[in-house]
Simulated assay, not measured.
Amino acid sequence: MKKIASCFIGLGLTALALSGCAAASAEGVEPTTASPADSLTPAEVGITAVPNEEFSSAVGPVLESFPNDYAIFYFDSEHKPVIGFTSDAVPAVLDAVNSTGQPARIIEDAGFTDTEYNATAEQLVADLQATWPKEVPFPMVGARPDFGAGVIGVTRIVDEGSSDATRLIEESTRLIEEADVGSPFSIQIDKNVLGPGKAGHGG
Rank of each mutant, 00 (worst) to 15 (best):
F85N: 01
I152Q: 09
S39K: 14
V154E: 05
A43L: 08
G161D: 14
D190G: 11
I107L: 15
S183C: 11
F185S: 01
S65F: 12
A119W: 12
A24F: 15
G200Q: 04
T173V: 07
P61I: 11
P51L: 01
N68S: 15
S172C: 05
P103T: 06
R105T: 13
R167S: 14
L13N: 12
G101N: 03
I176D: 09
D69A: 12
P91D: 00
D95W: 05
E160C: 10
P139R: 07
A71N: 08
L16P: 12
L40Y: 15
S162E: 06
L194A: 04
G202D: 14
D127A: 04
N98H: 05
V82K: 03
V45T: 14
A49F: 07
G46Q: 15
G197N: 03
F147N: 03
I9L: 15
S87K: 11
P31S: 05
E108T: 05
A34Q: 13
C7E: 15
G12L: 06
V93K: 00
H79I: 10
L40A: 05
V154A: 02
S39W: 12
G197P: 04
S25M: 14
L18R: 12
I107D: 11
E64C: 10
T33C: 09
S99R: 07
D114E: 11
T86R: 10
I106A: 00
L18Q: 13
P91T: 01
P51Y: 04
P61H: 05
A179H: 06
S99V: 02
I169W: 05
I47G: 05
I47L: 11
S57I: 10
L128M: 07
I187P: 00
S39I: 12
D38T: 14
F147A: 11
D180M: 08
A179N: 09
R156F: 09
S172L: 01
H201E: 15
G153S: 04
K198L: 13
W132Q: 03
S35V: 11
Y74E: 02
V93R: 04
A104D: 04
Y70W: 06
P61S: 06
G153N: 06
V59H: 03
M1K: 14
D95A: 05
P145F: 01
A149Q: 08
E160D: 11
E116P: 00
E78T: 13
G195A: 10
S77F: 03
H201G: 14
R167H: 13
E108S: 07
P51S: 02
D146I: 05
D159K: 11
G150K: 04
A34K: 11
S39T: 14
K3Y: 12
N68R: 10
E53R: 15
D146V: 06
A49Y: 08
A110I: 07
R167C: 08
G10T: 03
A5D: 13
Q102M: 10
E135Y: 10
Q123L: 13
L18F: 09
